[in-house]
Design a protein around this nucleic acid. Structure first.
Lengths: 337, 337
DNA sequence: CTGAAAGCGCTTACAG
DNA sequence: CTGAAAGCGCTTACAG
């Protein structure tokens, strides 16, 4: 095997073995340009024979498109990652793109070079809170295709955003509770600074206001999208003897934690305290009682982010905001309907 | 801004602006070679000013190391992904590597070029069932650093593997059930062909044999690591009137599905049927009753796979098998202790 | 349908 | 401490 020191075949090795020029090899690999069937077969054989894989770096440098899009997501374990991926990939694969993911820890780190960038990707899908505003601005200035997930673009940057109708979903949840006669409705907040969480709180407040139920700050519990934290918040309400007959949780994990704390304290759900969650994670239907919640169309979020990004990569204009509708899923945690 | 057509600064633009050679810019970026503080500062300013990001492809081609490792995982939504990532990243970041993930769908696809390969990565961590034997063999032949997760190397390939003590964990689970006096112990299998699943079944059988309890094929329910499928399997047992007083589920999702089916049929857990799971997912402690299960040290799996890969990347020899111990977590689904 | 040659943006000896 | 120049492995006009 004619190979270099690192024992890796190059396009030249392939060309030599197949008795053609590197240009021809390039043509059969990229399926562009005309190549005689016989020649092409010989090249394919040589590739096989030499265990050849093209050097993507060289390819990009020479002007080939990466055919690659990156997804940047924060460290936080997102329960939806796999569903989201499914939505994104399906669409992207149809268009011939590969997807690479980068989990962006260490936001604080000063001048860092992202491993996925304008040089090796055709576009980026950026999950909420995984890139700094400065990094976003840099890409924007480069006119590099970018789509934001669950986060609006920073002031002044015109970057398309895909998310769900958080406010409306939250209103629906609270209305459901109110319709069932509950009045003392507490709210288990989501992660501070997280847009989804914030819109859900706004939906909660607005719906209360709409029904002339005064907002009471002591009924907002601290949360961070985790069951543990929600447990603690509910225990605190119980401890302080605050009168609550229903809880709207900003996410299903928190709803789960709340249920747990309530039941441990001898409260019955929904007889003593009703609960509505948000997200509809896989587990929600298995909770006991099964959880009434607002379903997020995660796969659609993925699919639409891919759709918008593809538009951008094709040089077309994308929609600056895609708002996907949520669904109220009625189960047993609010009392029968 | 002196930039090319695509409006992206190159190292030459930076060099010009800072009034130095490209060699010097390269030196400050890579922090190798001596550079006067004053010069270095000027270069850093120029980089900032021009919004410059190095072209990773060019860098690799010129002989720079990618400082990048890839993780290839199958499409299957793995509930542990985030924990696994945490373990892997922590170690890798310490050593200065970035981590990029590729979800490898479409295994069937014929000649494909992986976007993460010997040209742009220093090594690869490969999750069970995400690469074909041929692809594994190709990398192995290239002497490219590779670590396998939850999967042994194919015949003849000497590739280090990191996984957990599945067999022993399963035995422990079954023994726990036997110690509680259960005799008719059913098994809810995991995904067929999945090594973890297979070892768990072997552990189940061996422990039965050890206690002279005959293995009964009708007590093995079809499963695929999902709650839905487990529900169906349990319903089937119920329908056929098969006598079962305990279930060992190959994974917690299946255990959850089993509980649901059992409870819907009016069975009490653990009084009528006891259950032990495997994995200890976040949710297990919130199930009702809370689930007794075998905990997988996922973060350790991640950490050790990084450790082994780093050895390989440094040219050292790695351990061919790393087996991480599991733990029996006793909760309420088997009766009190 | 095929090949010779330039050029992409870097890094690394080599020289000073 | 710094620079000139070769070379990494590709793709793409250009020519035939």
């Amino acid at each position: 095997m004619p190979q270099n020191t690192k024992n890796r075949a190059t396009i030249e090795d392939v060309a030599n073995l197949a008795n053609v020029s590197t240009a021809t090899v390039s043509r059969v690999i990229n399926k562009n340009g005309q190549v005689a069937k016989k020649t092409s077969d010989r090249v394919l054989e040589a590739i096989e024979e030499l265990n050849y894989t093209p050097h993507s770096g060289a390819r990009q440098m020479a002007g080939g498109r990466p055919n690659l899009v990156g997804l940047i997501f924060p460290a936080i374990g997102d329960p939806f990652m796999s569903e989201l991926l499914e939505g994104i990939e399906t669409k992207l694969v149809e268009e011939g793109y590969d997807l690479l993911l980068y989990s962006s820890q260490r936001l604080g780190e000063s001048p860092r070079f992202l491993p996925l960038n304008e040089h090796n990707s055709d576009g980026l899908i950026v999950f909420a809170d995984s890139l700094s505003d400065a990094e976003l601005a840099r890409f924007h200035q480069l006119e590099f295709p970018l789509v934001l997930l669950h986060q609006n673009a920073p002031e002044g940057l015109d970057i398309p955003c895909v998310t769900v109708e958080n406010k409306k979903g939250a209103s629906t949840a609270v209305k459901h509770l109110i319709d069932h006669g509950y009045k003392n409705i507490a709210f288990l907040a989501g992660l501070e600074g997280h847009e989804d969480a914030e819109w859900r709180e706004i939906g909660y407040r607005e719906e209360l206001a709409k029904h002339n139920i005064p907002f009471r700050p002591e009924l907002v519990g601290y949360g961070d999208f985790s069951a543990e934290t929600a447990e603690a918040a509910v225990e605190n309400w119980l401890l302080e003897g605050i009168n609550i007959d229903a809880i709207f949780a900003a996410d299903d994990n928190s709803a789960q934690g709340a249920m747990f704390a309530l039941q441990r304290a001898g409260k019955r759900i929904p007889q003593d305290v009703a609960i509505v969650g948000f997200d509809d994670i896989t587990f929600s239907r298995y909770m006991s009682p099964s959880l009434t919640t607002i379903r997020m169309p995660i796969k659609d979020v993925g699919r639409h982010s891919a759709i918008q990004l593809i538009k951008l990569m094709k040089g077309e204009k994308a929609d600056s905001l895609t708002l996907l509708p949520t669904d109220l899923i009625i189960r047993d945690s609010c009392g029968k309907d």
